[in-house]
């Protein structure tokens, strides 16, 4: 059986909020190392991969592999009943029909209990290869969100060009064009505000802004975001959490 206690329900709330517009039904795969999720969006252009390590839970117990087939809209409805600071306990049997969620406030004088019906989801099995990227850019997640939102007003797609000292986001649309150039810089007082670039070779790729704007819903999970780029390889957008991550992969536009 699964029993997992999360100190802050807000972590799961933010994770679900970040991915629910990309995928609707998906399996939460639970085993002794933690809870993971991998799913492609319906159009097979983007993929989300989420991991919550057992270290993020206290206690965490999962005797055998359990797949929890969950409709994320249903989970969102139930999680609305939890405060961010509530303690959240997830429980499921070995071959579960439902997932049990208990929310307790920090004073421990209120507890709420919900059960969500589970579904059988036949999901593609995906292997994510280890990849050496040409460029890796770390920037404030709020900055990335603002850039994607601003450029999406002008165009459906953005070109990301990484060079040794800067990363440029540019777009062109019917009303005109726009670009944002971020120079590599280190903010010693506020490291989360820094922009860093690791470059093997310069790279320039074009992506759909609709998806990137969607990924930015994960900004609440982390003050920084990491973009990894290589030619003809899906872009990796990673939000790290204290004990886990949410990663999005997005295919570049390659003239189809």
């Amino acid at each position: 059986m699964l029993e997992a206690r999360l100190e802050q329900a807000g972590v799961l709330k933010k994770v679900v909020e970040a991915i629910k517009d990309l995928v609707q039904d998906c399996n939460f795969d639970c085993n002794d190392s933690g809870i993971a999720l991998q799913a492609m969006d319906n159009s097979h252009v983007a993929l989300v991969s989420m991991s919550l390590s057992h270290e993020g839970f206290s206690p965490y117990r999962c005797d055998r592999n359990i797949a929890l087939g969950i409709n994320l809209n249903s989970l969102t409805k139930v999680l609305r009943a939890a405060q961010n600071e509530d303690i959240l306990t997830l429980k499921a049997a070995d071959s579960p029909d439902s997932l049990n969620l208990v929310f307790e406030n920090t004073e421990r004088d209120r507890s709420s209990e919900y059960d969500i019906k589970l579904m059988d989801i036949d999901q593609e099995h995906l292997g994510i290869p280890d990849t050496d990227y040409s460029a890796t850019v770390v920037l404030p997640s709020a900055e990335f969100q603002r850039i994607c939102r601003d450029l999406s007003q002008l165009s459906e797609s953005v070109t990301i060009e990484a060079s040794k000292s800067s990363v440029k986001f540019s777009c062109s649309g019917d009303i005109g064009n726009g670009s944002v150039n971020l120079r590599q810089h280190q903010d010693l007082e506020k490291p989360d505000q820094s922009t860093s670039i690791e470059l093997v070779e310069p790279v320039s790729l074009t992506f759909s802004l609709k998806y990137l704007v969607n990924f930015c819903k994960a900004s609440a999970l982390s003050p920084t975001v990491k973009l990894s780029l290589s030619t003809d390889v899906p872009l990796l957008v990673e939000y790290k959490m204290e004990a886990g991550y949410v990663r999005f992969y997005l295919a570049p536009k390659i003239g189809d």
Binding site: G127, P129, A251
Partner: peptide, 14 residues
């Protein structure tokens, strides 16, 4: 559908 093909090849969909 080059994009979908790229995703399927990259992620080794079984």
């Amino acid at each position: 559908y080059k994009t979908q093909h790229l995703m399927i090849v990259f992620f080794d969909v079984l």
